[in-house]
Design a protein around this nucleic acid. Structure first.
Lengths: 134, 134, 134, 134
DNA sequence: GTGGTCTAGACCACG
DNA sequence: GTGGTCTAGACCACA
């Protein structure tokens, strides 16, 4: 159910977990009012230290996605679905912006960047059909 | 002449300096045989710790971009221009790959990623000729 | 009749329930010899885990406010009213002491604290008679 | 220079450290641009685990009081002084509000609360002179 | 040397 | 059982 974070990935383990939770909320697999897996439970499933999950939950609560009820559990907040979509899109845009800036500094033309992305997506099989996901 | 690294940027200071040097070589502003600024001189110009510049030079020499001539300074190597192009392209591709993976995890479709990049490039005025869509 | 504890309040749920019971006794709404609502009944009314109410009753009995008559329910003890006043006053004083210490650490003068409290009480309309200043 | 947090205090250790840092900024003992003690250094001085200090610094950075420069150190941000005053006052007011509400629930009159605070401050010797601190 | 992240495991209050 | 906090100590990239 929950994808295991890859310790060697460029994103930190906690960032990956955070992304998973947000994606689950944005995709409607976790709806406002739902109870999330417990800190210890998710940590066990992801083969990760409970502190790491706790940090993710704490941050997400601070930002309004979750409501933690000590002694009881962690719920998805009412506004979470809307917030999550915004957050994921903003995060992606920020990285895309970085990439464009890096390309400019390195002297690549705009079309070259586009072509590179298109090639990558095609290689991953995410570009043949019209609109497969989401 | 040399762009100042931004301490708050996602790339580390040393990575930014490295990128600047490579871009200068790839773009032909520094040609094989040219003398680079001294470690101390560049550090002063960039308002950066000399250790940081020294590390960049050291790495670049180990990878064959630069040749240190003891007692006389640091020169651009003969093969540097070709190497630099490869390296810059590889770096960009790595980030592009990360971005595509992040997009997939977040549930975005391939076309959405392409559209986002295109919009960004257009917004930065780097896509006037032969726009692909629209 | 009984105020619902607020899960997000700084006081724990059980502490809020305890406070409600003590306030009812101190104010004479529950007199010595009166029968309190059952654990299950009060828990249902407060939308709270019965364990939580049970713990409150248990603590209050241990401290002499309540008397459990096995098989017949929970009664307010004879000395409860007097005890409750003392306890409520002590609790308030403890918090007031914390507040003063926090103010001192933060560098506020004594008069500032007084003024702040007075402003708050006035704002809540709890300070009409004999206002001390102004 | 830095007050040692008391593990038995009602405020958590990290909250106490946070308060100390904010108070130092608000009082002008640490000015915008100043470098704070290192995580490990402050932890050693306070006889506390470095993780605890790191958490405080991280939170304060997120809220805009500090700027951490990895590998270099932690600086007080430009806006910190103004923010700190606001934050400390707001924190105190929040606790004062709690206290007033608790007093109301417990059935105390406004004047009783005021009298209690005044007595406490007097007992701590913080109310005789006109305006001694700050 | 600096901060950042992660693991491991303890203790607490709460439900 | 739940989450929250703290300690201890490892490893990393960075300056």
């Amino acid at each position: 159910m929950w994808p295991r974070p890859d310790p060697k990935a460029p994103l930190s383990i906690s960032a990956q977990i955070r992304e998973s939770v947000l994606a689950a909320i944005a995709a409607g697999r976790q709806r406002p009012g739902d109870r999330l897996p417990s800190v210890r439970g998710l940590a066990a499933e992801l083969l990760v230290n409970p502190n790491t999950v706790a940090k993710v939950y704490r941050d997400l609560e601070r930002e309004g996605f979750l409501v933690t009820r000590p002694g009881s559990g962690v719920d998805v907040s009412e506004e979470a679905a809307a917030l999550a979509m915004v957050e994921l899109r903003a995060g992606l845009e920020a990285r895309a912006r970085e990439l464009c800036e890096q390309a400019e500094r390195a002297g690549f033309a705009g079309v070259e960047v586009l072509a590179m992305i298109e090639a990558l997506l095609r290689e991953q099989g995410r570009l043949q059909p019209e609109g497969s996901q989401r």
